[in-house]
Amino acid sequence: MKVTLKVWRQKDQKAPGGFQIYQSPELNPNMSFLEMLDVVNEDLAGRGEDPIAFDHDCREGICGTCSLVIDGKPHGPHQGVATCQTYMRSFRNGVEIVIEPFRARPFPIIKDLVCDRKSFDRIQQAGGFISVRTGSTPDANSILIPKENSDLAMDAAQCIGCGACVAACKNASAMLFVSAKVSHFGLLPQGQPERHRRVTAMVQQMDEEGFGACTVTGSCEAVCPKSISLDFIARMNRDFAVALLKGGPKKPSSGGAG
């Protein structure tokens, strides 16, 4: 089979970008989408042209490095998989495929189809953790956790941080990502002491990064390679409201030594 690619090319963050059309060499329908790009790149290199830059690493749907918006949908035509798990047999012979980078102001483009998702790291650094020092922990079975909660926390924890939710949302909102992180910790007893601090700090950082707001369109859930539910967004909305109503911590009263 062969396909025509309409690919976004952009030299670097500052340069203006635009679409280029490429004819693929002969392809095997069992190729993954990224292998198709490998083949196209080898072909380009053979002609001395600059290969198309795209992000990838594990190629088994877990590292969250691969991105790409394929014909308007992040991670390609199927649900519950990442771009690296998309295969060429999902496309008809001879079609034109539009390939674009994830687009959002907080995801500036580095080159071609590669975008910079460090804003996600900064959100996580704002509060996406349980403050526990190595070695200072009780026995793992000393705190019982209902299986339902642990399973629900796992549902949220499955997020691979790829950013497809942002890419799909018409508002470029990061609510699904942030809420998955907030909920993962918020559902576990170990996460309770910092629950309100965490949600406040992470939401604030999310806003500072310039992501849009949630209008409950459901795009994020539809494209998430791990099918993370919008329920978690509601959970974060609730946690944030409670945190605000509770207010910040009281200043410690004076007195101490002596």
Partner: peptide, 23 residues
């Protein structure tokens, strides 16, 4: 805010999987 969060839109269609009323 939402508009400024995506300065350049998609050429290959957008808002996949969104409830149409929401748009």
């Amino acid at each position: 805010l939402n508009r400024s969060a995506r300065p350049i839109g998609y050429a290959g269609g957008s808002a996949y999987g969104s409830a149409w009323k929401s748009r």
